[in-house]
Structure formats: structure tokens, C-alpha cells
Design a protein around this nucleic acid. Sequence first.
DNA 1: AATGCTCCAGCTGAGC
DNA 2: GCTCAGCTGGAGCATT
Lengths: 204, 204, 204, 204
Amino acid sequence: MTKKNGAAADILRSMRDRIVRLEEEKKSISDDIKGIYAEAKSQGFDAKALRIVVKRAMEDASAKAKRRETEEIAELYLASLGMLDGTPLGDAARERLVEPDRDRDDEPDDDRAPPLPPSHTEPEKPTRGVLTEEDIAAAREQGAVDSQAGKRIIDNPFVAGDPRRAAWDEGHCRDRGSDGMEIPESWRRKAKTKPADGSSGAAE
Amino acid sequence: MTKKNGAAADILRSMRDRIVRLEEEKKSISDDIKGIYAEAKSQGFDAKALRIVVKRAMEDASAKAKRRETEEIAELYLASLGMLDGTPLGDAARERLVEPDRDRDDEPDDDRAPPLPPSHTEPEKPTRGVLTEEDIAAAREQGAVDSQAGKRIIDNPFVAGDPRRAAWDEGHCRDRGSDGMEIPESWRRKAKTKPADGSSGAAE
Amino acid sequence: MTKKNGAAADILRSMRDRIVRLEEEKKSISDDIKGIYAEAKSQGFDAKALRIVVKRAMEDASAKAKRRETEEIAELYLASLGMLDGTPLGDAARERLVEPDRDRDDEPDDDRAPPLPPSHTEPEKPTRGVLTEEDIAAAREQGAVDSQAGKRIIDNPFVAGDPRRAAWDEGHCRDRGSDGMEIPESWRRKAKTKPADGSSGAAE
Amino acid sequence: MTKKNGAAADILRSMRDRIVRLEEEKKSISDDIKGIYAEAKSQGFDAKALRIVVKRAMEDASAKAKRRETEEIAELYLASLGMLDGTPLGDAARERLVEPDRDRDDEPDDDRAPPLPPSHTEPEKPTRGVLTEEDIAAAREQGAVDSQAGKRIIDNPFVAGDPRRAAWDEGHCRDRGSDGMEIPESWRRKAKTKPADGSSGAAE
DNA sequence: AATGCTCCAGCTGAGC
DNA sequence: GCTCAGCTGGAGCATT
């Protein structure tokens, strides 16, 4: 007798039960995942770092591109505000700053200081451990000076691992950041959704 | 010398500092709020319940109406699935179920049992403590029978506090729930954004 | 040649892949669930209400008890602050307020007005539609007066559906709320985690 | 008359009102912050990147150290799994990998290939644009070979901006990653909360 | 072990 | 129609 009742209630009951069932399966899987993280942790892996790895592994191409772009812009902002604190710009961020300059190369650059010869841009030897705060500050100023001299961000003379590398980056970015002009193109997010022309494949 | 640099960087710095400042103020306020909850707890109040009170106090009229509507529909669903477990329908949910019935009154109800005289609908005395499971089940069946007899949900004969009240509600809702028909109007959300006709003002 | 490398990297890879696999399964299930909600919505059910139903269905006994307790206390708080706005107390909340009174009954209640005979507590007829704001306010005052006269919250003379019912509740709770005393027991969360003695079965 | 009621209710009301007031202030501040982000966006800044900047600016020293450590370890994991996809290791991650090697230098390294002379480690010229996938793969193999030859991660011969730089890192990290040994120290989180002495790492 | 806080992702509602 | 910001809910982490 209790079963003669409404079709709507039966549908509702069916939906409820299906969802509950699926939620339970989901919870079971979540527990499995949690167990793997626990196992990793017990073996000495860093669970939080592993989470980052997993997240990266699950990113599709567009999500990856979007994340990278945000990170690059953030690096530029941090550099221009002197907040890199020791972490030099990543390569991708350097690329961002260089690419617009390429466009500039296509135009007559009469009104700009000609790029200095990269001769003395050879990497300086990493004089590890003996660097003072003054050295760091000097590198920062050097970055600003080099920027005004037309040096590009990729001309950073300090090799990876040298603390002066980040400082030079900071000085360079601080000098850029639009000298009275508009916000630099490199500070902006690229065109919304278009990968532009076919040559973008190389950039990826 | 460091200050001649870009306008963009200066704007950025200003924004960063303004936001940081505001975030700090916000954090300070959050801490104050947290402190009040802690104080309440230490005095014996239930912090979680207090949170509900605060949330209600901050609801505007439309948010309140929306929440109430959702709760009512959820109650109807729960009742029709026999999941009320002891909590009878709220008044608003009863109202929902009664209003469509009014429309029904406008139509000829020849094919339905005439509404039984409400004589024996007088509240039964709450025989507290001596109710057995059989009594509860009987009340549930009674609700279904009364529903078929044309009784309305507001004709629940059991007074508040009587465990049979919820059971009768369940029986009634279980019998309804569209006997082969469509989903009842009372199970649906009212017109999305329109308050419908002017009479809705009274409901508010 | 690429496979001779570290055991640690292999373990890491394995963990990453297992997690990614499980996350994908989880996402698949989440999508299924989402689909059911969408289906429900398209059939006219209220998805948000259905979510509540599902949540209730997945609650275990202790979670349910905890939720109910919080809701009850919140109702009491709302009532005592005059925020019930039309929603009368639920039965469970009434129970909360009555039980402590039972303890009181064990004690001599000389210093309190004796419970008035429930004779005139018979449910008043629900005079629907003709109630004015004055009637509501009168019911509120009546609740306060009845409270002082020793009436219990379950003696609310207004039947479900009567707007005065909530008002009477408010008046009653407003009068209670510890007249200079400590916070009432009914306002507190019951014993933390222990279901205490066997009598808890009744509460369930 | 309404004011004679319970002290508890008054306290509750006071708390409710204080919290509501503070919540409103908080909301006001949140709106201000939101406005700044909107302003930034309208001026061409990337709001999401700005959020990162703000977050960094609000980090205290310990939070910063913790974040950096997690990022470094994640980079090592990514490198060892070949997931760097174009982003070379950051300097800090290189440092992590070098420091343990220093310990190794303290030990007799008879069973290891003697460090090749760094002569041919001079930065290769960034032959931009003409690199093929084969070149990248070759750099990756080179990294593995160099690793076995005793080269350190900081001996990466490719300059910043060279796509082969990341590949070499990957090859190097892939070769490391514990050749049958335990998880390398550099893969682990340093001592939890105590900077303490070096022995604490073993306890974890 | 249980609790509370904080963070993040996923969902919902607007808006172009 | 799709995107995007806001928000709520859940999950992880630290703490007691």
C-alpha cells in the first residue's frame, strides 16, 4: 500500500539513492588518495610538494599556459617592486620582457640607445660566499644602469646561483616599468583566448 | 635615483600597499569577531548556534525568502521520502501544501472523497511517554488515509510535541507526491524572479 | 637507459600516477552526480533542496544528533531575540525547554506560580486571514505573560499555521532567557561527546 | 516592559549586534579591496598576478621560508619526473641539490667518477630559434651523463633562456633521485620547526 | 584523537 | 553563450 504513492516521490527517491551511492564511491576514492599521500609522507616525501606535482600532471595545455602566464606577470611585478628577494626571474618571464623588444627591433630604433655590444656581458664568475650586501646592491644598480643602456633582461651577466642575478633583475625591472609611458605590454595578459597566428606553436 | 623609474611600478606599489593595509584592517576585524565568539563560548553560549543567529540577522529580505523557500521544499521532499524522523513539517511548508489545494477547491471535486467533517480532527491529547512504535506507525498510515480522504496537511490532528505529528505528516506527504500526475506545484520553486501578482506582498 | 635511474623517482612516479588515476575517477563520479542534479532540475525538482535531502540521507546518527542540537539552540536564541519572524519553534526546541522544567518539577516549586490549569489552553481556532498586527503583538505579550504565569512552552495555545503561534513563542522565550539568573541549561550544548547513560536511547 | 527580560538574552543580543557591526565593517573593507583590484584591472594590470604580489607582501618570514621550501622540493620532484617542461630549476632548488653534495665532498669519493674539469662547462651560446627537438633531447641526456660524471646541478652549461637548460636539469635530476639508495636529503623537508642542528633531519 | 582554522576548488549567479 | 567573479562547502593542516 505504501508503494502506490506518487511517481514524483519515486523519482526523487531514485535520484537520492543514486547520488548517495555515487557520493559513497567518491568518498572511497578520496580515502584511497589520502592513503597514498600518507604513504608518501611516511616514506619521506613531502606531501605538499607531491600535491603540486599531481596538480601539474593533471593540468591540460590551456590551464598550464594560463598558470604560467600569471606566474610570469607576477614575477615581473615582484621584480619591479623589489620583492624578488633572492629569486631571480624565471626564463619565461625573461622571454616576456624580450619579445616586445623584438617588435621594437623591427622598427627603426633611432630614438633609443643602440644596444651595447654584448661583449662585456659574459657571465661573471660566481664568486660564491664572498659577496657582501654592497655587492648585491651594486648589482641592483648595475641592472638599472644596464637597462638604461639598452641591455635586455636576458643580458643579465650573473649566472644562476649568483645572488647578484636576482638583484640585477630587480634593478632592470625597476628601471623599466614604464618611464612615464603606459604600462608595458609585457605587464599585460596576452590576448584573451586567441593563440594568435600559427607561429605560436614554437612558443609552446 | 631609484625614484625616477616607471609610473606603472609606482601605481602598482601604491595599489599593493593600499590592499595590504586594508587586508590588515580586515584581519584585525576578523580577530575581533573571533574574540567575541570565543567570549560567547566561554560564557556558555553555543558558538555555532550564534553563528546561525548572526547569519539570519544579516540576511536581507530576499535572501531570507529564498532560504525559507528552499527549506520548505526540502521539508516536503524529506516528508515524501519518509525522512522527517521526528521533525514535523514547519508551518511554512504546510502553507505551501495548502495553497495549491485551494485551487483544487475551485474545481469540482466529484472524483474525490468529500472532505471529512473536521469534527474528529480535534487535537488528540499528547499521551506523552506511553506511545509505542506501533502508535507512530499507525499515525503514519492515518496521515496517508486522511490524505486520500481529502484532509489537508493542516488538519494534522496531533499537537506539537506529539511524535505522531511528524509521522502523520510523513504519511500525508507520502500519499501525495503526485499520484501518477506531474510533480506537484508545491514541490517547485516559485516563479524565479517575479513576485507574480500583487497579492504576493501579503506573503512577505 | 632512462630507466636505470633512481628508485625514489620511480616510487614518486608511481604515486603520482596512482593519484592522478584516482583523481580522474573521482572527477568522473563528480560529473555523474552533477548530471543527476541537472536531470532533477530539468524535471522540475529543486536542486538545492535535493542537496539537503542527500546530505540528510548521508548523515550518520551522531552527525544528525549534533545538527539537530545546534538547530534547536539556534531556534531558542532566535526566539529570545525576537527573530523568529513567523517561524514558530520546532518541536525539538520545545522539548529542550520543557525537559529542564521537569527537573524543576522534582523540586518544590513553592516560589513559582503553580501551573495554571490547562483548561483555557485549548487550541484557539485558527482565524486565518483576519489577523492584524495587533493580534500578533497581543499574542507575543500573551506568551510573556503566560511564561510568568508558569506556562510551559508546549502550552502554546495557537495551532500550527496560526501566525500568532510564533509570536507567542517569542514572547515566552523573551520572558525566559534567565531573569537575572545564569544562562539556562536549555541554551547550552548537552554533554560534549558522551551519550551518557542508557537513557539516551529515548533522545534518539 | 520588554526590557525586564533575561540577562542572558541581553548578552546574546549585544554579542549579535557587535558581530553584525563588525561583519559590516569587514564587508565594507572587502568591497574597498575589490574596488582596488577592479581599478587595477581597468588600468591594464593583471589582477590575479597582483593578488600573488599582495600575498607575498603579507607573508612573514617563516611563511615565506616554508613556501619556498615547498616550491623547491616540488621543482625537484618535477625535474626528476621530467615534468619541468621548459621551466628550468630555480636557483634555490639548485642550492638544495648542491648543499648535500658538499657533504658528499667531505667523504671519500673514490667510488665516483672524479669531477670532470669544468673547462667545457663554459656557457654555450644561446643559439636561439634554431634548436630542434633533438637538441633538447640531447641536452637532457647530457644532463644525465654529466650527473654521472660528477657534475653538479649548478654546472648546467646552458644559460638562462636556452630551452636546453631545463632539459639538462631534467636529465640531471632524473639521474639522481637516489640510485638505489634512500630518498635524497634534498628531497625531504628540512627539520620541521627547529632549525636546530643537522642531525634533526634523520629524526623526521 | 578531536577540534578549529585556513585554504582551495568547485558550483552558482551575473554580465558582456 | 561563455566567461568570470563571489561564494559556499570541503579538505588539509596545525593544534590541544
